[in-house]
Design a protein around this nucleic acid. Structure first.
Lengths: 139, 139
DNA sequence: CCGCATCCTGAGCGATACTG
DNA sequence: CAGTATCGCTCAGGATGCGG
């Protein structure tokens, strides 16, 4: 991952006169790209959104995020933990118990992610109609 | 794509007692998933963000979204157009000219996407530190 | 109960070359 | 200028089984 990050930095060092990325210097573009990819990847948003009412255990998350596999939940949690967006607390009990919760930083992302999910829920019917109309017109 | 969508619908038809997706009936989950994937895919957010100050031509977008390839710009624009998030206007001139702009619906997503990009820009340094700390502690 | 390791498939994406 | 067509690859992500 580190090697690719450096490559990206080298490649995106082109002149960008304007646009949404022009606000930041070139060396930050790769990092912002990475964060965008992380925030927008298939599961992070839903996991963050699932933590809106307090800490949850691994198995609870597995249930509350429909369709996620064990593997992807584990990976997503580790990434979010690494970025400091969630905390991981393991209790030395039998059976073992691990709880995940949002950090303050994760909470700020949480709000944005929830608004995105709400947006999808609000407009999915309109978008479906648009798609049908587009596909019909394409024929 | 259609076949997989139906499969997903069938598979996600399980009971989800709570969580961020519980607000909507099961048959909408697949559609919301698709919209989330679209909104969070590698380029859509940046293309939408690039359209903040009015219509842009194909080549302008190619310049303003650093790193995007012709192929991915074409595909992204077509998807966004199909979903009714952007308009496509072709002028019968020589040389040809095509302009893309946000629809009102796209504008509502634009605001969310911009806040996400701003979030990434605001917190990238903090996240980088978190990653370094995490990686150091892992050793 | 929690979660890591392995294998495997295919969608996503980039590079390149070509058209109207 | 604004795309389309094709090739090739990387890697996300699902399935399964094992280990603490």
């Amino acid at each position: 991952m580190d090697a690719t990050a450096e490559d990206v930095t080298a490649k995106t060092d082109t002149v960008v006169p304007s646009g949404p990325c022009a606000r930041w210097p070139p060396e930050n573009r790769a990092i912002i790209r990475q964060i965008m990819d992380r925030a927008g990847d298939k599961w992070s948003a839903l996991v963050i959104a699932a933590l809106n009412d307090g800490a949850l255990r691994y198995t609870d998350l597995l249930r509350r995020v429909p369709g996620i596999s064990q593997r992807m939940l584990t990976l997503t949690l580790r990434h979010l933990h690494r970025d400091g967006l969630i905390t991981r607390t393991a209790y030395a009990e039998v059976p073992p118990r691990v709880e995940y919760d949002l950090t303050p930083l994760g909470g700020t992302l949480h709000d944005i992610v929830v608004s995105l999910i709400d947006w999808a829920g609000l407009h999915h019917d309109e978008i479906s109609r648009n798609r049908d109309r587009f596909d019909a017109a394409a024929k």
